[in-house]
Simulated scan of single mutants.
Amino acid sequence: MTLAKVRSWTVDDYHRMLQSGILTADERVELLGGQVFEVSPQEPPHAATTRRSSRYLDRLLEGRADVRTQLPITLRPDSEPEPDIAVVRCDPGEYADRHPAAADVLLLIEIADATLSKDRNQKALIYARAGIGDYWILETNKRRAIIFRDPGSEGYASEINLSTADSLSPVAFPDLVVPLSALFLP
């Protein structure tokens, strides 16, 4: 039996597929670890938690960072995910000439319901290998946050589970305290 060889794509390959129309803006896809994946459709709790969290963080971080919702970040050589929320360094050009790269990312948040396994395993490893120092998963079904820190080539060395009764400070903003209850629906 012969196994089929899987082709891995780079970020540059992915951009060429978009520019040539092989992939279109109408297709909800992202590049993860060299493979193109469809983005899962959102259930109402996922969408509402994304909106609530991004609005809260936008107000909290006004003038200190940009809060981007479901927009690409470029993690070379082979990933261009669209995290639910990316807190990135302010850019005078608003990233008009490029997507934020790993060095621009201050905090990533994925909202998880049906996507928990992908967010916890596949995306966490990609984010850790890119050196993203602060990655949160907000799990809507259990109303908890899973906090990943201390990235390395094998994944995150630190994983903490918190409830909506807890608060924490983003690594990039140790002076701020985020009550997790502010990120979830009441």
Score class of each variant (00 low, 15 high):
V67A: 01
L168I: 05
T69K: 07
A112G: 14
L107G: 07
L23S: 03
E94F: 10
T74G: 14
R89H: 13
R16A: 03
G133R: 06
A114S: 15
L71M: 09
S181I: 05
D78W: 01
E110P: 00
Y156Q: 00
L31E: 09
F148I: 04
S167F: 14
R51N: 13
A182C: 05
P186F: 15
R59P: 06
S158C: 10
V29H: 07
R68K: 06
G131V: 04
P186I: 13
D166T: 03
K142C: 07
H15Y: 09
I147W: 15
V6Q: 10
V178N: 01
E30I: 12
L125C: 02
A124Q: 05
Y14K: 06
L116F: 15
F173Q: 07
E82P: 00
R76D: 12
I85W: 00
L107P: 05
P174Y: 14
V177R: 15
H99S: 05
A130F: 08
F37A: 04
A172M: 10
A145K: 08
L180T: 09
A114F: 12
P44Y: 05
W9Q: 05
S153L: 12
E38Q: 07
E38C: 06
V178R: 02
A47E: 14
I111S: 03
I85Y: 01
L23Y: 03
D97M: 05
P151V: 00
D26C: 08
P151G: 00
H46Q: 13
G93W: 01
T50G: 10
G34D: 12
P174F: 13
G33I: 05
V171C: 02
E27M: 02
A48V: 15
